[in-house]
Structure formats: C-alpha cells, structure tokens
Design a protein around this nucleic acid. Structure first.
Length: 192
DNA sequence: GTATGGATCTTCT
DNA sequence: GAAGATCCATACA
C-alpha cells in the first residue's frame, strides 16, 4: 500500500484491509481522513511536539491520547511536510480474538473493536508506538487481496465540532462492527 | 432505547 | 481554566 497520495484515496483503500499487531488482527471497516487544510485536524495549527509525526514521511503510525484516556491510531499520508492522516475507527476481529477478550474485559464480542479507543486496547497498541514505520514496525497493514469485498459508503465524521460538514468518513456497509449507526440520510436510502 | 456525567491528560487561552 | 478525533456506568423511559 502506498501512502504518499491523497489521504482520502488511502482512506477508501484501507476499508477492507487488515490491521495487525502481534497475534491480534482485525479487518478495517471504518476510517476517517484528516488534513491540515481543515480545523478538525491536529495538524491544522502547524507542527507541534505532539503532532510532528503527522508532518513526517508517509507510512508511519500516529498514535495519540484522546480525552486523557484512550490511544487512537492513525496512518500518516501524503508527502512529507503535509499533515494528513487516516484515523482507524473500527475493526472486525480476525485473529487473536481470545487475547482481545482478555484485554477488553467482559464486553460483548461486538464491542471488542467497534470504536477507535476500543480497537487500540484490543490490539495492544499504545502511545509508545507513535511514529513507528508501518512497513517494518510492530504494527502492520495488509491490503485486501481476497475475501469479502467491502461496500464502501461515506458520511460525515464523528465526535468532532469543527469542519463537521465534510464527508470524510468511510465505512463498510456490510459490517456489523461500525462504531455507530448510519446517519439518518443513509438509513432512509435503504442501508443498514 | 436515549441521556448524562465521570475518568484523566495534553494543549491552548 | 477549558476543551477535546472517547468509553463506560448509571439513570430513566
């Protein structure tokens, strides 16, 4: 997978790919793209110590702390010095499901990885992995080569207060593991 | 089923 | 001091 191109193209291609860390892996079913041109992106205000990875070369992991509690994982895209990344928001468990259950505690299987903070906990991805190389590091991404074809649908991003009009959320409509139900417009169009 | 508040930390005002 | 790319427990319908 090449990451030195439009963050939105990469986001679409990541739906259906596999995110792997150690013995655990999941099929990516929901992502969002962020770009320094819009205010919801951490890179909007320019490079800061916390966000320097966003401005580094593509193909690296940007892991940061959200709401003081959770680790969220992103894939850095576009060329160096451009701050853009794809946030991984939900997975379907594929490998190491027992280990995920141990890490996540007593929750339903559906809740193992259907949120950005949940999937990092289930896969054991921590803040220490900020800046690791996805081509050689502990976190790997395997492009979809066979198996189920995702039905990619787009919508507005979730959990933000700025640039909420941009439809930069990409989901697999065939998956039960998206983090939230579809926006009303999608449901009324006949999707689930 | 929806609604609300707490946990906890980095960054900015 | 406040807000944020969140999750969970609890309360109520």
């Amino acid at each position: 997978m090449r990451y030195d191109r439009s963050v939105h193209e990469v986001a679409r291609d990541l739906v259906g790919a596999t995110l792997r860390h150690g013995a655990t892996a999941g099929r990516i079913v929901e992502v969002e793209s962020y770009h320094q041109e819009e205010p919801a992106c951490h890179a909007f205000i320019g490079p800061r110590p916390r966000t320097e990875v966003l401005f580094g070369p593509p193909g690296f992991a940007y892991v940061y702390r959200s709401y003081g509690i959770h680790a969220l994982v992103n894939v850095v895209c576009e060329k160096e010095d451009v701050g853009a990344a794809v946030l991984i928001r939900a997975l379907e468990p594929v490998d190491g499901i027992e280990l995920m259950r141990e890490r996540r505690g007593p929750v339903a299987d559906r809740d193992l990885t259907n949120g950005p903070g949940k999937l990092t906990e289930a896969l054991g991805i921590t803040l220490e992995m900020n800046g690791v190389d996805l081509a050689s590091g502990p976190i790997q991404i395997e492009p979809r080569t066979s198996g189920r074809e995702p039905e990619v649908v787009t919508g507005t991003r979730i959990g933000i207060t700025k640039a909420i009009e941009l439809e930069w959320r990409f989901c697999d409509a065939t998956s039960e593991y998206v983090s939230r139900p579809w926006p009303a417009a999608m449901r009324s169009a006949g999707r689930r």
